[in-house]
Nucleic acid binder design. Structure first.
Lengths: 332, 332
DNA sequence: GTGAGGAACTAGCGCGCGCAAGTAACGTTT
DNA sequence: AAACGTTACTTGCGCGCGCTAGTTCCTCAC
């Protein structure tokens, strides 16, 4: 093997041999290893030769020798991947990239039978944007992962301060509505978030002197949405705060097909300001959510777990804003 | 190290030592290695002891020793992740899992600066559901990956036979429409697919004796959709075949806000049968696409590339079906 | 002059696995 | 009886890296 062929990978030993120095020196240069002093001349020679020979670190060798895969696995719920979430992922990916880690996103299939990625990849840390599902943390631990974020054993801390439903209810009250319903989603994938938003909507109602809001979880069908509308209107409801824009759209569509005139007969406000909200006729009032900075925060959490770095400052503030459109109107 | 502590991983050597056999034998059992004959008694002892000790293969060691990461990277375009695509991914994941591979999905961020995952993971094969973007194949090759699917150097073969637009046009013609426009999407992420569907719609028009369809790519805004509607109606267009349901919804919403009565004044048909299509008022006619089997096909392609398995049979037939709803009506 | 510390490297083991080449015993065939 | 093939294992090298412990030389302070 006196000549490097184009089919065998270049190793640090090849660089060392080529320059007449030790392989360890090559490694210290390539990793900029703290605590080692390498002359500028040698460092330059190594970096130039690595580039000339087309050296690529063998990540399996590195992982084996160091005991770390440098993979951060981000478990995503089976939610729509919207623009905000995509940006968050890229932010996190970039921050971790700078620290030498690979961010991999993974959405476990709800009824899938494939072995979960945390078993196949042996990541250094597994993060989730929502609390781990029942049994999930145990499965991850059984796969040898010791760093889970959020920590399943930590006391249930403050959740993201979902202020959107508060804004929904306040806006409807400001329009004069006093009998308001909360429409959740029957999709089991988002049950926790639905419950959270329902609770926040009720918090706001209480603070504004209203009784607890009547509430149902609906399927995105005319039948389901129509039933809920019938029940609520019979109870005198004049406005609906919907879990998200899809639920709002299902309600508005069903209401129109039932012969209602919206928003005269019924006001409906959605959440999340998806593109659908501005295409629907009438255009849907909604709540927009700005999650800038969340990705960097998550990356900071991951790095603090694997590298004994300090915890990042408190998470970013989610900014919500009301987007009034034609699906809501003052009462009467 | 005479006693295994709970903090050190269990290795094949531990099993071997415990049973008084060689580590190679342990490996042959755990991998069910072809060409090796191991007694049933020994195999059982090894498997039991591995389970008892909590053995987990060290994937970095395996990758280093075998020269293969057993990772298949699936590059996804920045498209919405709909139900069909999710199912395809799970199918592929399951098929690859059974062969001992990990499927990782990766959507490169359009303006991201993070190092691409094919550099960080050194996958055995990189697959894409669309032709590789300019420069992408080169970047993947530079990262040491030699197996790319589709092969960037292969002659441009048959694309998926997009029959949806044909169905759209045929349906509108069957309703009596003779002046039909094609509405594309201005979203650069889907430019190729828009062009393909436009061409297929024109193929159908030609085959039905119609002239080439007037066509614009619209943003999902009232202004953009409204402009297109104005121009087309002025040219006598009575029906629109839209690239997808979002485009159709933007047109319908804008048309309604312009004071049109749909579908009396204008018929619109979408594509992909998303949930939005059945919530909108009027409910949107559309084309449903059934992609069952595509995931398994992709997995078969990957396995044929890395394991010298035979190529899978021809890809699954995408079944499209017309879903007539209230956004389309006979002319006049 | 001596000793300590720093610069600039080196030698080499270990990480945990895959697997080629090998060994010993036994059974079958010539 | 000898040769061959099969069964059921074993020995041990290599994969490519991280990094500890070490060496040699030089400089500076006392």
């Amino acid at each position: 093997m006196s000549q490097t062929t184009s089919t065998r990978r270049v190793t640090a030993a090849d660089i060392a041999r080529s320059l007449g120095i030790s392989r360890a020196t090559v490694g210290f240069v390539l990793n900029d290893t703290p605590g080692q002093t390498i002359s500028e001349a040698t460092r330059t020679r190594v970096l130039d030769e690595a580039k000339r020979l087309g050296y690529r670190t063998n990540i399996a060798a590195r992982a084996l020798a160091s005991g770390r895969s440098r993979i951060v696995l981000l478990v995503l719920p089976d939610w729509p991947l919207d623009f905000n979430l995509r940006r968050n992922i890229e932010e996190a990916s970039l921050a971790l990239d700078e620290a030498g880690y690979a961010l991999i996103t993974y959405t476990p299939h709800p009824t899938g039978h494939s072995r979960p990625l945390w078993e196949k990849l042996q990541p250094d840390v597994v993060m989730s944007m929502t609390p781990f599902a029942p049994g999930q943390a145990e499965s991850i631990r059984a796969a040898g992962v010791t760093r889970l974020i959020p920590d399943p054993e930590a006391p249930v801390g403050e959740e993201y301060p979902e202020e959107g439903p508060v804004l929904q209810v306040q806006y409807l009250v400001d329009l004069g509505h006093r009998s308001i319903a909360f429409a959740g989603s029957a999709d089991p994938r988002v049950a926790d978030l639905v419950a959270l938003r329902r609770r926040r909507a009720n918090d706001a109602a209480l603070a504004l002197g209203l009784p607890p809001l009547p509430s149902s979880d609906i399927q995105l069908t005319d039948a389901s949405a129509g039933d809920a509308i019938d029940r609520w209107r019979e109870a005198g409801v004049t406005a609906i705060a919907a879990y998200n824009d899809d639920v709002a759209a299902a309600l508005v569509g069903a209401g129109l097909r039932m012969g209602l005139t919206l928003p005269r007969d019924l006001s409906v406000i959605g959440h999340d300001d998806t593109p659908l909200a501005s295409m629907f006729e009438p255009r849907l009032s909604t709540i927009s959510v700005n999650t800038v900075g969340l990705g960097r925060y998550l990356a900071g959490l991951a790095l603090s777990a694997v590298e004994n770095r300090p915890l990042p400052p408190a998470g970013p503030e989610l900014r919500v804003a009301l987007v009034p459109r034609a699906s809501t109107a003052p009462l009467g």
